[in-house]
Each structure stands twice: as C-alpha cells, then as structure tokens.
Design a protein around this nucleic acid. Sequence first.
DNA 1: CTCGCGACTGACACGACCGTCAGTCGCACG
DNA 2: CGTGCGACTGACGGTCGTGTCAGTCGCGAG
Lengths: 230, 230
Amino acid sequence: MAARRSSKKKSAKQSAARKQPVTKAARRQQILEAARDVFARKGYHQTTIDDIVAKAGVARGTFYLYFEDKRGVFAELIDRFSSRISMAITKIIIDAPQRPVPEQVRDNIHAILTVSLNERAMTKILFTDATGLDSAFDRKLATFYDEVVQLLSESLREGQAIGIVGDGEPRVMAYLTIGALKELLYQVVTLGLSADSADALTQQIYDFISNGYLREPPQVRRGSSRRQGR
Amino acid sequence: MAARRSSKKKSAKQSAARKQPVTKAARRQQILEAARDVFARKGYHQTTIDDIVAKAGVARGTFYLYFEDKRGVFAELIDRFSSRISMAITKIIIDAPQRPVPEQVRDNIHAILTVSLNERAMTKILFTDATGLDSAFDRKLATFYDEVVQLLSESLREGQAIGIVGDGEPRVMAYLTIGALKELLYQVVTLGLSADSADALTQQIYDFISNGYLREPPQVRRGSSRRQGR
DNA sequence: CTCGCGACTGACACGACCGTCAGTCGCACG
DNA sequence: CGTGCGACTGACGGTCGTGTCAGTCGCGAG
C-alpha cells in the first residue's frame, strides 16, 4: 500500500533533489509517523518492527537504514515531542512589565494543552509507554522531567518571596501541579475531547492551582484551624 | 488457572501442616514477593520468568504450578494492591455527625499515603508498568481507576451542592486531584522519602486542594478579575 | 518394605522477533 | 550502452524466552 513507485521529475543537475520518489528526510518522516501511529494504537511493547514497516509500506531492511532499532524511533519521537512541549513553556517573569503573572500562567497552561491536543498520539504514547523501557532511556526522560520540575519550583520559590505564591515546599507543589496537569492531558486526549475545549479547561486548571476547590463550610465557624489564606 | 486442587479440608488427621517445608499458600506468597521485587527493580518488561524463579529459589516448572504466566502474577499483585488502596479510601460523609469534612479528606489522603509508603515496590510498579501491557488488562485497570474517579466526582458534586466545593466540572476536578496525588506518591516512593513525612505531606496536599497556591499580588488592586472565591 | 501421590524439577522443543546482507532496481553520468 | 551508486528489499540464521512434560524425590499409608 502507498507504494511510492514510479519516476518523478528529475531535476537535471540538482543532486540534492535528484531522487524524486522520496527524499531521505521524507522517508524518515514517513517511518516516524507510521511508528507513532502504531505505538499509539498498540503500545510500544506490543509493536514489532514488522508492524511499523507494514504501516509505512517499506521493507524491513529500509527501517534499519534510517533507525538503529525500535528504541531509536521511539526515542526520536519522544525527543521531538518533549521539545515541542518545552518550547511551549515560557518562564514566568515576576516583575511583569505588561503581562500580569496570572496571565502568563494561563498562557503556559493553554499552550501545553494546545500542543497535546494537536498531538494526541504522542501525548498518549508519552504517558503510556515512555517509562520503564530501559534504564538509560528512563534517565534521559527523567532529566527532561526534572528540568520542568526545576523550572516550576524556581518560579514558585520566587513567587513565594514576593507573596504571590502560598506557603509550602516548592518542589512538592511542583509535583502536585505537574501531576494534575499530566493526568488531565492524558484524560483529555484519551477521551477525545475536542480541541476547542482548551479555553474552558485552561480556566479550570488555573482556578484549581489558584484557589483549590475546598471551601470552609459556611455555617461552621472558621476558627478551628488557623491556617488560611496568607 | 487458579487450580483449586482438592486437598483443602479433606484431611482426616492433620493434613494441613503435613507438608512442612512450605504450604501451598506460602509457596505462592514466596513467588509473589519475588516477582514483586524483581518487577520493582527491573520493570515488568525487562523481567523474565527465570528472573522470578531465580529470586524465589524455585524451578521454572514450579512457577507454572502456581501461576498462568508472567501476566498472571502481575495481575494478582496489582489486584491485591489496588484493593488495599480501595480499602484505605472511605467515602466522605457530608452531613458530618462528628467528623468535619476537612478531617475526613485529610484522613483519606493520609491513608493512601501510608499504604503507598508501606508498599513502595508496589506503588512504583503500579505507576511504572501497569499501563500498556495488554488491552484486556488495561481495561480492567481502567475500571478500577474509573471507580475512584467516579467516587470522587460524586463527592465533589455533593460538596458543590452545599457550598463547600467551588465551581467547576467535578470530573475535571477529580482528574486534577487524582493526578496530583498520583504524581506525588510516585515521587515520594521513588525518591525514597521516609515514612514519617506522611503527616507533613498530607497537610501540604490538603492545602493544595483546599486553597491552591496562587495568590493575587498584594499591591495590585484585586478587582481586575472578578472571578474569586464565590 | 513398597506403593502411590503430590510437589517439584529442568532440559527441551517451539515460536517470535530481531538484525543482516547479498542481491535487485532505476537513474545519472561518461 | 555500461558502469557505478544509492536506495531499497526480504529471506535467512540466530537469539531469547516461553511453556511443557517426563522424570525425581520424600513421605505417609497400607
């Protein structure tokens, strides 16, 4: 299927574009996309090289022309995706010139949500299969993850210093926040919500980290535990 | 599977303790524990039956006397653990006779944390390997997970009705909450925090879902966005 | 003592998947 | 033309883990 047969137009001299049927980059991309789709459907471990090449419509040997092995494609997929996520995040500037912090926070949430919704397959793969493959790979992933945690922790610490972030261990808060976000992303992608629910979800996530949701019961006097606001 | 071979009560005399070396139940337990430890160390997919039997100190064939296959042990481990978690959760009673809701919430958080800290290996396994094995297994796990989500969603909805839970889609709030908790459990177990940090962590999680952490900047007039409390 | 039985063993046959490599194909260049 | 080259192919040998099953062992009953 999808056999890229036949000759295309060959540009006389251009060596770069001489091979028309598909350039190396295009073939690579083709395999990458096939792999992504199969991974998303069957999961990493259920997937064999044969599955991938069948989906891509190339021969087994061709796969090995472009990638080391199954781990190789997988790693590249995760790399690309995680860098798209990284790209979507912008560091919070405390002394806001024009942009109030809440808006920056909301923008970040919205951006991440958007990337995930545009790359549902990858989002699912990242949360379902990316962990527990190989200790080397795990470590690499943990590094990326730690960077995000680190970044958020720093921001929280700074926020605490100027009083716009409540008390608590920043690192713990970072875990809680990221965990909440991860879970929501996964569910949204899995349940197949439409991409335009991003705005409403952004608001809801923002409200959550902003105010939580548990309220003191109205009739009970609120003196019992003195922890509150600040 | 689950060969409920005769034996059982039938013994005229004292058959139960006749086989001294190990009873059937004990051997089963022995294999389960070996499997748990190996899974936690190498991950489910890296683990072979040989690894498990080596750790348990029995022969390959013996394993198959007690379990269907690797999936079988794994499923049983997850079953036991998830039911311990379920057991730890108690439904929130709104019209508190004596126990205020916040206390019930805290108790639940604390109980779950305690189970996880007492079963680090299982906690790690659950979050690292339990997903993406097999579509049948995935569905079973999703069912358990959905029950928890369902329970929490209901409680949140009830809470909203009497004004102790803020606005928002209960299901989304449930995902955010559970995600936050999951992530923290995983990190706590992985990083190897001591079990006596449970109290402090409980408080921090409670504060998070209770108040969030983002505060309006002090100097800025708080009227800019009218969403607030409610 | 010997028989029977249940628990246990581990060598073996099997199948799945992997990575390779000798060979095909089409094209541009001399 | 024919030659060289780069892209591609797919059959093949090799590895690894699985599940089985014929056989051993210990012990209590007859």
